[in-house]
Design a protein around this nucleic acid. Structure first.
Lengths: 328, 328
DNA sequence: ATGAAAGCGCTAACAG
DNA sequence: CTGTTAGCGCTTTCAT
């Protein structure tokens, strides 16, 4: 690999001039031409590692998510990537697998590799951002809020829970259960609170604790919880699924038992990914995942650019798609 | 951030000794202890960038895929990641979006960042690996084969096409169409060839060209092609979908037209992701995506470790899951 | 076993 | 506008 010294020699200028050409500072036209020629001839590419070492920062941002196999997060990743690559940044995707330890490892790498910033959907409430924040690198939280004073982009989770529950109530269901993600994850808790508010207003006689389940944010979590609910002495006649994958699991179980919606009402918070036989009888509260990624990336880039205003949290509106109007 | 000099000073040893401690070369026990103490006290982490610059290689591998939103590829990514992180490597995921230019950019980054190796599912047949191979870095091709003399892991694509078609033939369908990905992508071509072989043997009277469609490897590609096929003077009575997303699109269109399988036979090459209303009437040729990732990662790690045997290509067997036995 | 010292390739003062 | 120079933090001979 050619270095700036090789280029400098061939172009008969100093290494510094070569560096300047590749960094857009003022150099006379003829030298620029000479350098570009030489660089082309030598097939020269600046060594990013050296640049990073020198500059103490690199044009890479880390995106840390808890489940790379969840289309919700990959959709968000697309949003981040589009904005970032537009701005000349590359995005490295890190899968924490919802484990704080793995998350910590990736955060350590982000620091050690001098990445410019981090967008993170935290693994859980124990996620530790202390050391990354101590380095002064900008961090934007997505999807889940944190206890830190940093920028964030979240969904209108409570509203999502309420809309979902209300739609089911309007459709005439009475015992409406809720299956959410892990209780200590704030999105799950908020969505549950929304459901709870709607239900306790409309059906004060219900014992909501009995109808509430916390699972993993995955298909098997949704399946297990749905089975528990159906085993209840008095099973629910409808259910709100706290995320897309839980929704998939719940609908699977229902279908297997011959309880295809709308026999049992279903509302899902988050879009159903890749639906084949379209479950027209399912209400979907769409979450703008891509938009979340776009927004977070813009905020992060602003911060990297030196924006120092007080930290902001953006709440994204969601859009309800009532049962029977469903078309992907 | 503390450096080895800080640690050296505190531990009263030379920087070289500190380096040795962190690289496992022989250092007397007491010094090791002193260094570890000092490092802990200063919260020292070796600067990877500097190490990379010095060593001219980093413990990062790049995984370049054409569609991060396709569960087939994210499943594969999990396989890669698991093996890599086990071995102390991190994986950066790069989404080429099926564009050779984006792919080239990421490949350039991989070189510039001194990454140890690349696993790539090429964007198309024009993908250019020349410069990356010129650096001597190991490259493993996954999913799609290339014209280069490098290691590869692919599915038994032709066999998959044949199995899918045969299963449909056995079920009594006669006019069996095929919807594949872009014609010039070898997986698509191979799967098509498999279908063609099965059909021309069993139904020599059919005009296969009429029943063959090449689309994008995405849901809308499957939808469009399925609609075209249904608009034929003599529409097919069954269809083989060349990948998971095409399958989703085809089934969607069929369902919307009231032609729910098995009214029209469907066989999908690749697993149907996140099925809700289980399409029991659909044949699925399972592709071991995770296994592909695992295998590729192992091969790459071997090469990074210096393995210099002639290049190998591993073909992974797939498993057919006939219609009506489907359970996710 | 340990230390001194020379870079890896680049950038950013500082002169001129 | 341009060249000289001094490192960024680490690893690795080469002596000791």
């Amino acid at each position: 690999m050619a270095t700036i010294y090789d280029v400098a020699e061939l172009a008969k200028v100093s290494p510094a001039t070569v560096s300047r050409v590749f960094n857009g500072t003022s150099v006379s036209e003829d030298k620029v031409a000479a350098v570009r020629d030489a660089a082309a001839k030598l097939n020269f590419t600046p060594n990013r590692t050296a640049r990073t070492l020198r500059r103490q920062s690199s044009e890479v941002i880390a995106l840390v998510i808890p489940d790379i196999e969840n289309p919700y997060f990959t959709e968000m990743a697309r949003g981040v990537e589009d904005v970032a690559s537009e701005a000349g940044y590359s995005v490295v995707l890190c899968n924490s697998d919802a484990q704080v330890e793995k998350e910590a490892t990736y955060l350590r790498i982000a620091i050690a590799e001098h990445m410019s910033g981090i967008i993170i959907a935290t693994a859980d409430e124990n996620s530790n951002l202390d050391s990354i924040l101590a380095t002064g690198r900008p961090v934007v939280a997505v999807d889940r809020s944190t206890t830190y004073d940093i920028d964030g982009v979240v969904m209108a989770n409570r509203a999502a829970g309420t809309s979902a529950a209300k739609d089911l109530l309007d459709a005439g269901y009475r015992r409406i259960a809720y299956i959410g993600g892990p209780e200590h994850i704030d999105t799950a808790a908020e969505r549950a609170a929304g459901w709870r508010a709607a239900l306790s207003a409309a059906r004060p006689e219900l014992d909501l604790d009995e109808l509430e389940r916390f699972a993993t944010f995955r298909v098997d979590g949704g399946r297990a919880a749905m089975e528990e609910l159906l085993a209840l002495p008095e099973p629910p006649d409808a259910v709100v699924a706290g995320n897309n994958l839980i929704g998939v699991g719940a609908i699977q179980v229902l279908t297997e038992r011959g309880l295809t919606p709308p026999q049992v009402g279903v509302a899902v918070i988050g879009s159903l990914p890749f639906t084949t036989l379209s479950p027209t009888a399912v209400t979907v509260v769409r979450l703008p995942a891509r938009h979340m990624g776009v927004t977070a990336a813009r905020m992060l880039l602003d911060r990297i650019g030196g924006d120092a205003q007080p930290s902001r949290t953006v709440v994204l509106r969601n859009e309800i798609q009532p049962a029977s109007a469903v078309r992907s």
